[in-house]
Design a protein around this nucleic acid. Structure first.
Lengths: 193, 193
DNA sequence: GTCTATAAGAGGATAGAC
DNA sequence: GTCTATCCTCTTATAGAC
């Protein structure tokens, strides 16, 4: 094989690629509902009709672009959580890794997006992301010694701290708020590891 | 005095009141950006020009409606956090109180709203809410024995768990996810109280 | 496949009668 | 103060030439 297809971002541009990347970036900035096809065209540099040649509607574009964002974000998390080494170190590495907190979470913000929440498939993509992420984190907690229900509650709390950290950093315009949230959570977790 | 003015919701309707309440509800459902003046008119039952008689623009309506939501939500939190009794019990009561988690946080969701984030005053209202809320929670942690920086980190983590709990409950369409997040956090907090 | 031009509708706001 | 009617712009999507 000559490289994966779903998440490879280092490929010759191409119109379809350019459109998808522009859409992903614009969704990260303003969400799906507020992003117009015109904006996607302008940023990707292609012409009017070309967008509708590759994607029949705004909705189909959103499905494709959100799928990529979900796959990329999940792969990145798995990279930390399924790395080699002790489970507690992997958890700490994942939770405290650098994040552009003021920009917000590309997936989490979609839970407030009316266009996404009104569409079953888009909604399902977001649900799938968090379901998988929680499973990954819960597996690490189980490995580290927590058992069953406790591991799952801790995993959900951990992912919530990150998502809430994004919300607070964004609200306050302060990247350090995410760090405080993670530090506060890890301190509680720490003593008994 | 005959009752407070800023947050009283039990007052004769009146057009301005009806408009504000309709706007607050619609913002909770779809956000500010996606809520049209037409929708506000339809839900409040008033006529077209009447909206613009009370509020010069969509933006001014948003400023007034968001101010009310912030004041109400903060007052509700203060009710729990500044009640009588032990600080740890007030914290637990606040964190585990019933919430419509799948609906999302009326204030937190605004951090993903492009209309809000593009406007300094609206953005400032959201920042003020979280700043005050964190202060309230941090005060309780300090009272309960945590000191200085640790109390603040814990407060930020606690508020993040709630905000992230809303995001996860909404993403998964499952109210129990908020409960798991809070349970996971309280379990870590519990042993050393 | 890509472009320019354009149509149908919704969004935000205003005019002016009552 | 409240209503109906209306205006202009932007959004989404399509048509059709190249």
């Amino acid at each position: 094989m000559l490289g994966g297809m779903t998440t490879d971002t280092s490929v010759p541009p191409g119109a379809r690629e350019a459109v998808l990347r522009a859409a992903q970036d614009l969704y990260a900035e303003n969400g799906v509902a507020a992003t117009t096809p015109r904006q996607v065209l302008a940023r990707s540099g292609i012409g009017q009709g070309s967008l509708y040649h590759h994607f029949p509607s705004k909705r189909e574009l959103a499905v494709a672009a959100v799928a990529r964002t979900v796959a990329q974000t999940l792969a990145s998390a798995a990279g930390d959580l399924e790395a080699e080494g002790a489970a507690d170190e992997r958890l700490e590495a994942y939770l405290s890794r650098p994040r552009d907190a003021v920009a917000g979470c590309r997936v989490g913000r979609l839970t407030a997006d009316p266009f996404v929440m009104a569409d079953d498939e888009l909604r399902g993509q977001v649900a799938g992301y968090f379901s998988s992420l929680i499973d990954l984190v819960a597996a690490a907690f189980r490995e580290q010694g927590s058992s069953g229900e406790q591991a799952r509650d801790r995993a959900i709390a951990a992912v919530a701290v990150l998502q809430g950290g994004y919300v607070l950093s964004r609200a306050l315009g302060d990247p350090s708020t995410m760090q405080s949230a993670v530090r506060g959570f890890l301190a509680l977790l720490g003593p008994r590891r």
